[in-house]
Design a protein around this nucleic acid. Structure first.
Lengths: 336, 336
DNA sequence: TCGGAAAATCTAAACGTTTACATTTTAGAA
DNA sequence: TTCTAAAATGTAAACGTTTAGATTTTCCGA
């Protein structure tokens, strides 16, 4: 492994200066054919691979963007990441992905590491919407794009899904089918998605003059278990709903588990719509209606925004993308 | 954003030389308390963050490991990655994750980028077991650990699950319940998991003197659709099996979809065991029996091996870890 | 007060690139 | 041929660290 060959070794072997080699490596032209050939040969003979480290240091850019997600094992994020990666690769960017486990502390640590490594930009779904702990990025002038969750205390480009509208559509659908006792399993109210989906629920009820019944509003935490418990509670309440709207995928799964156990007949005794598609949706019986988000597209847009921000050093205004989710009606809703 | 402060700015502000600052940054000791304090103050006053680029360049190590997976949206991998990340963070290592979409070409490209960036090691589930396209890593003396899929043409540390045994256990279970017409949906026979799981199936049959019936061996490709089609074919064959063993999670999902549509009663008319746990397993009815793998542990071990390899520059022998999967019997198997 | 070892600090040379600028070569016109 | 502009190539200075080895300072015992 006698030390990796450097540009100098190549230059020596091809009997040219390192500047010329550099020109060839970077396709800058202005090198004679024969010389270029000699250099190319030298490169392949030595198996030379240029050091991105040295290059980035000089260039002051790494062509790397950092991605921070709260939970890599939640299927939503890998799909978003796939979208980002795809577009990034096209533009010659590479990605560093880190997961915070919803920990603000880890997030801060990761931010620091990203800065040390000189990422050109960051796409983040933050564990803490205040955004105080990622201020550091802002200070360094590193472009940021927020995905799925907003950042409160300063301005960044944002890609969101219209949660209010998505929830609204779902609940309206239930109302139009004749339901009046419609329950919601909420997400945490201190997160954008949790809060907004609840707003959409309220909006639909209001619009159709159905009074909000607080016994039908269940607080969940976006985790499977809270969906499970919520469904149980609704089943045993003395005001059993005829329809349930669940605020995210994991809680949907919890709900369905509970319904199955309770033998509370989906699509007959109780209608159901969940926010976010889940793998099981299309093949449990009856098939599940869901509000579906274009996950890959979200990633693609996020990268696009970041890319523009990186190359447009002027001051762009803050931009906010609001994607419209799609209501996929399947069999878990019934007329009443 | 007037250019980020460097170690030199810190040195100037604290009226010391850069060497002393460096010593403080790296906790090397040998600096007087008062001096250190002055430096620490200067650092925080300037908001100095050291450049990992320059550092890595000098140190010739990046404290970064690369992870290559074939499909980030397959839930198995995020769990493995979570295990790797966890252990890596503990040791002060950071990870670059890339997904190849099962493309050998992209994989080769990623390998190149990883080398350019000077990763200290790589953990990979390769898209192509020959490993020719990752030879480059080997040439550079970069430690490699293979996960889930072996690498043929040269020796690397490997973390596998005992596929033969897992499949064997599953099929034996079916046999012990009285089944004789047991079908298998295979994975690609040019991948370790595909091949070995088939071997386990054959082994169980042999051991209990059940002749191999090739009409019960369905070739799949680890994708959902092939599981779906496989189940269909089995249903309509004139030698309908009483039990099915599916070689991976995605195909399991395809199978279950088909069974549902065909109204082929799981756990009554046909028993079922799948390799790899799936989210739906525990709440479709009847609950699904599966061969389950310790995904996070796999990641943890992979990192451990890599870590040792990185720090043990002597020549360790090739090591191979074989984890035992666990058979989780639920309700999708019935006595006959 | 002094000498000298130990402790603290500094100097300067890497690390492997890119790039502005200087120099040499080329080739076509006179 | 000789001249000249253009093309090709070379020189050397960064980029921001780490780290030997040199130098200075400190501190203690005599």
């Amino acid at each position: 492994m006698e030390c990796k060959p450097t540009i100098e070794d190549v230059a020596k072997l091809a009997s040219v200066s390192i500047a010329t080699v550099s020109r060839v490596i970077n396709n800058q032209g202005g090198v004679r054919k024969v010389t270029e050939e000699r250099i190319v040969n030298a490169i392949s003979e030595l198996g030379y691979i240029r050091s991105a480290l040295a290059r980035s240091m000089k260039r002051k850019e790494t062509n790397t963007i950092g991605i921070i997600v709260p939970d890599i094992t939640n299927p939503f994020f890998p799909h978003v990441v796939a979208g980002i990666e795809q577009k990034a690769r096209e533009k010659g960017y590479y990605t560093i992905l880190s997961s915070t486990n919803e920990s603000t502390i880890i997030e801060e640590e990761i931010v620091r590491i990203f800065i040390e490594r000189g990422v050109d930009g960051v796409i983040i779904t933050t564990a803490n919407e205040t955004g105080d702990h990622i201020k550091l990025l802002q200070d360094q002038g590193i472009p940021i794009v927020a995905v799925d969750r907003t950042i409160k205390n300063f301005e960044v480009d944002t890609v969101l899904v219209d949660n209010v509208n998505g929830a609204y559509q779902a609940v309206r659908q239930l109302i139009l089918q004749g339901h009046e006792r419609i329950a919601i399993i909420c997400g945490p109210q201190n997160t954008t998605p949790g809060r907004e989906r609840y707003l959409g629920y309220k909006k639909a009820l209001e619009e159709y003059n159905i009074p909000l019944d607080s016994s039908l509003v269940i607080q969940g935490d976006f985790m499977e278990n809270s969906g499970y418990k919520g469904a149980l509670r609704l089943f045993y309440s003395n005001n059993r709903p005829t329809a349930i709207f669940s605020s995210n995928n994991q809680m949907t799964i919890g709900c369905v588990k509970a319904l199955t156990e309770l033998d509370w007949k989906l699509g007959e005794e109780v209608s159901f719509i969940g926010f976010d598609d889940v793998e099981i949706a299309t093949f449990i019986k009856p098939r599940l209606s869901v509000v579906s988000r274009p996950m890959t597209t979200i990633g693609e847009i996020a990268f696009q925004l970041l890319y523009e921000r990186i190359h447009f050093k002027g001051n762009l205004p803050k931009r906010e993308f609001l994607l419209t989710p799609e209501l996929k009606i399947r069999e878990s809703c019934h007329k009443i």
